[in-house]
Design a protein around this nucleic acid. Structure first.
Lengths: 186, 186
DNA sequence: GTCTATACAACGATAGAC
DNA sequence: GTCTATCGTTGTATAGAC
């Protein structure tokens, strides 16, 4: 494998493990088996390396989400499927976890990648919510609720040192959606 | 004011601004107008200082939450009131924002304070959910959903650089709760 | 209790040889 | 493209005087 490739992969891993602030260029180099010179040849610095890593991580995440969102089943099935899909909960969201890091939020291109990813997801979810519930709900708001419940589930699970709060949160919301999708009173 | 007091306050501020990983003892000292010796006289080190700061921050947060949760109105009113209460969204949750920081999660006493705070909140919310909806829902799960929506709302807002996603997420969940609390089909 | 001085490692980046 | 050497800064903590 090429050095540039190994550097990106190592940066992805270290950002997942330690966050952007905790990812040192030297640690990336060590893991990639590359020297200082190699890294600074391929990237202008830490932020540039992180951008390449985050771009790839975000693309992977969108691809995984799309598998469920564009998959088989009714719109409601797919929304519940998205909520309940398997995740490495204790690791945190590979994208969302960086939203608390000032080093990311204050670095334009890095925050933009977070924003782009969530905007992409919001669009997909809003469509499905509309398809599932019509105008019985505010689709944009409910799409945000779904995303927030997932992101917050990671927070609660990591705080608890236990993945159960994540499952509780998504189960709770899935229950509400299924109830809402049931026989209406009108 | 005593030096110890100023150190704790400064540490609270810096943890809110930069996170635990981004809070350097020296920066705390500078802000508090205290020297190295003073800080290391009152605290054993950075983790100990952070623990004191986080203890106080968490206590403040519980007090604010209790104002709404134990306040006037029906159980449903108070749940919606909790979701919609005013928050400094772009700053992030003073407690939950630390759940992504490995330095916090890997430091027993610090993570324990996050866990204790969310456990306290979960208990309060579960009671209110039961009061509001009886056994029409899984109260523990829905309490987790409420907490996760708030925590995730912070994540989405910071990623977007805009507080609106927070309001969308909480509004969406509040809408579901109000619908659920309305006339039932049975 | 508080101060200044110091230690020592890690950080992020650059220089220049090969 | 990759290496090693080096730079200046900051992080965290200790030492010892006052």
């Amino acid at each position: 494998m090429q050095a540039r490739e190994r550097l990106v992969t190592s940066a992805q891993e270290l950002m997942a493990e330690r966050g952007y602030g905790g990812m040192s260029p030297r640690a990336v180099q060590d893991r990639a088996g590359a020297g200082q010179g190699s890294m600074y040849h391929h990237f202008t610095g830490k932020a540039d390396l992180a951008r390449a890593a985050l771009d790839r991580t975000a693309a992977d995440l969108r691809a995984q989400a799309a598998t469920v969102l564009d998959g088989p089943g009714s719109a409601l099935d797919r929304l519940v499927g998205y909520l309940e899909r398997e995740r490495d909960v204790m690791r945190g969201c590979p994208v969302g976890r960086h939203a608390q890091d000032p080093g990311v939020i204050d670095t334009g291109p890095l925050r933009a990648q977070l924003d782009d990813t969530f905007t992409w997801l919001r669009t997909r979810l809003t469509t499905l919510v509309t398809e599932a519930f019509g105008d019985r709900v505010d689709a944009a708001a409910l799409a945000a609720t779904i995303m927030a419940t997932v992101q917050g589930g990671y927070v609660l699970a990591r705080a608890a040192g236990d993945p159960r709060p994540f499952a509780d949160a998504t189960d709770g919301l899935a229950g509400l959606l299924i109830t809402l999708g049931g026989p209406s009173c009108t």
